[in-house]
Design a protein around this nucleic acid. Structure first.
Lengths: 219, 219
DNA sequence: AACCGTTTCAAACGTATGTTTGAAACAAAC
DNA sequence: GTTTGTTTCAAACATACGTTTGAAACGGTT
């Protein structure tokens, strides 16, 4: 109960607040008061606010990247020799996220939202941290993608990967809000899993799209 | 020279800094020192920092939405009666951006980056401002999209539009950085127009993708 | 040249932030 | 039961922020 209680409560509170409001817009006082711990606890246990941000990411990204490695292993072992298809690679990502031990039902959407924020909010320290901490699974994902789309030039592939990342990070980072809008407008409830089920075919189709357009608009 | 000079210098500096660092991370002191005007000038001319943010958006979004309306008019008049295709609708957006009078060659990428930030950074006041100021062209775009994808259910269309927005906002919001990475890694120079030329087919293919995937992963 | 509305300026205001401090509370070890 | 290392706590620190102020400078009008 002693240390880990305070540490976990800070992480829990920070995770939710960061996901709701972003990093700069969330103060340590908000976090500590939500977590019902003393203000100084963050600096005592983590050292700094930036270190707390890293810890929040590490807490879910480390298990996720482990699960992901397993999924990739499985993927490669199943398709003996032949390259896994694009759909299956993308699906492995989604499935790994869904399979992860969740603290609660909002876990996945917080997870997604944070990932989106990591890409969008231009926090240099975070990007550096993530790059050097999780370069391995990321590199492996890139390698798989390359094998699954041999018809693309390096440049085309590069841009289309960015498009995929964007669609994913953006959608997931506002998944809660988007789900809410859809519910009030059309009256349909949606889970994060369903979003993923719609996103994967969209991305796969985009990656396999015919050539780039002429610079001049279609006549 | 008198008023407009100071006002424009503030807008120019704010635009660049907001695009580089985001809104919360950019202070009025950074802006005024870059613009070489007195700190109080922002509050004198605009009233508040939030109002300055609105002014920055209005300065490029108002001409853009006007250009866009023309493009849409043209699009609808050309295809007498028949519905414009998805590619052409999307291309109208890109072309309107390219056709706009630019203050300099970095104009488009700043424009894109700001649009991306508007979506990503959860600034309530900005979203409200944009919604009530530019609801008309946005609504028209949505209507065109609906006509161009009659095969989609309302729910499918809703999500796929989000995916498109995400890919676009995200890519464009970091277009500068992404172009730089590509140049150092593969040694290829890229213009924003070329990104658009790659993005449009990607999006169109995604929108026209076959049905959503089963919730259970492909066996 | 005197006036007047507008704009600039240096300085200050109040508030919020991340971080540090030093004492108090606590828990385990001897 | 005292000691020791760890954790909590209230308070303060230094700094940065958006905003306000009141006087000075400016520019056109009469």
């Amino acid at each position: 109960m002693a240390q880990s209680d305070t540490v976990d409560r800070i992480l829990d509170a920070a995770e939710v607040l960061f996901a709701e409001r972003g990093f700069s817009e969330t103060s340590l006082r908000m976090i500590t008061s939500k977590a019902k711990v003393n203000l100084a606890a963050v600096n005592y246990h983590f050292g700094s606010k930036n270190a707390l941000i890293h810890a929040v990411f590490a807490r879910f990204l480390t298990p996720y990247s482990a699960t992901l490695e397993e999924s990739f292993d499985e993927l490669e072992s199943k398709s003996e020799g032949r390259v896994p298809t694009l759909d299956r690679i993308l699906w492995a990502l989604a499935e790994s996220a869904a399979r992860m031990p969740q603290r609660n039902e909002r876990g996945i959407s917080i997870f997604m939202r944070l990932l989106g924020l990591a890409y969008t909010q231009s926090q240099g320290h975070l990007r550096k941290f993530l790059e050097q901490e999780y370069s391995e699974p990321f590199g492996r994902f890139m390698r798989l993608l390359k094998e699954a789309t041999p018809e693309l030039s390096a440049v085309d592939r590069y841009w289309r990967i960015q498009f995929m990342l964007g669609a994913t990070a953006f959608t997931m980072s506002s998944s809660d809000a988007l789900i809410g809008i859809l519910e009030t407008k059309i009256g349909v409830e949606t889970s994060v899993q369903e979003i993923a089920a719609r996103l994967v075919p969209f991305l796969a189709a985009g990656m396999k799209a015919p050539d780039k357009m002429q610079i001049t608009p279609p006549a």
